[in-house]
Amino acid sequence: MQSPFWHYASTFDAQEVMHRHAVANPRPREGLLVNFLDVAIDPEVLPSVLTPMAGLVEGVPIPANWHADIAEWGAALRAVDLAGPRFTMIELGCGWGCWVNNMGAAARATGRDVRLIGVEGDSKYAELAHAAMARNGFTDDQWTIINGIAAGTSGTALFPRQVGTGDWGLEPVFDATEEQQREAIESGAFNVLPMVPLRDITADHERIDLLHIDIQGGETAFVSECLDVMNEKVGYVVIGTHTRQIEGELFDILSGAGWILEMERPAVLMLTEAGPITTVDGLQGWRNKRLNP
């Protein structure tokens, strides 16, 4: 059976982009996994999968690797290609800092200066992101990791605590009431975090070359609330989608606002009597023609 990761549509040659950005001879590092962009990854970010891969160097991930597929790698690298001499990106739901590390490394390899911002609700992943940025040679003035929840407006959110690492599907509770906050603290099952508006995150930057969004089902609400900021400042957006309904809603919102869809791979479904279940998230890459004509 052919991999679903071959089934994408794009306006550019995503595989050519990936091969062009691939580092010729990534160097292996003891205890770490190294990928095709010469980014070193601590197996602790996903121990069950990555521990046996420590010390290895991955090739170009076609059609996919343990984390992403042609569609996502290609779309994110497309944003690097469209950037000017400085590459600035924001990763929402950054986990261990996957995309800020990878796209930062790709942009740096082309001679671009970089500014990298990650927003993550899980404190353990935020710590791993700090370590990853240092491990991969980014200086303190090139990156910022925010332990909070990206949103359209300010407020307070609850984020589930996890014991270790490896759970990528945790969802926040937005606009938590004082009673919900009190109950969350008493239960010990949630962290109380600030909701950080996208306008605040982008305030010090004239242009964001790439906004990477992976926020576990909140894509439509976030894009709707932040569309004015995105129209004004974001050149390219890569969005992980979690249902076909969300995909259709994003088509309407972003196409209606004049964005150009350049990459699309639909979510992979499993059909059950109870209804369709998403087994693999979908992916969309959109170009803002105001900033990238």
Rank of each mutant, 00 (worst) to 15 (best):
R112F: 09
E58D: 14
D140S: 07
T88K: 10
R199K: 13
S123K: 11
A129R: 06
L271P: 01
H7K: 06
V229M: 11
E58H: 10
Y8T: 07
E264P: 04
L37S: 09
W66G: 10
F36L: 11
V49A: 05
N231Q: 08
V119W: 04
G111H: 07
P63E: 02
G95L: 03
S10R: 00
I117T: 05
T279K: 14
D228M: 05
A126M: 05
L56F: 14
Q15P: 02
R290K: 15
A129K: 08
T202Y: 02
D122G: 08
R182F: 03
V49S: 11
V34M: 00
V57C: 13
G152E: 09
E127M: 06
T279M: 08
V80L: 15
R112C: 07
A184F: 00
V39W: 12
A132H: 06
I145R: 01
P63M: 02
G248W: 03
P85G: 08
L158A: 13
I277R: 12
I149Q: 01
D167I: 02
D228P: 02
V34F: 09
A189I: 02
R287F: 14
L37Y: 04
L128G: 06
G84A: 15
P276N: 09
R199W: 12
D141S: 03
G240P: 04
D141V: 10
K124D: 03
T110C: 10
Y236P: 01
V60N: 01
L211P: 11
I41M: 15
F159G: 00
G275M: 00
T144R: 13
V234G: 03
N101T: 15
I70K: 03
G218A: 03
R112N: 00
Q181N: 14
G74Q: 09
V17S: 12
M103Y: 12
G104S: 05
L193T: 04
Q142K: 03
K233G: 00
R265E: 00
R27L: 03
G111D: 03
F138W: 07
A71V: 14
E219I: 01
L77P: 14
I201M: 11
P47C: 13
F87T: 09
V23W: 15
A14E: 10
E262R: 08
A76Q: 13
R290L: 13
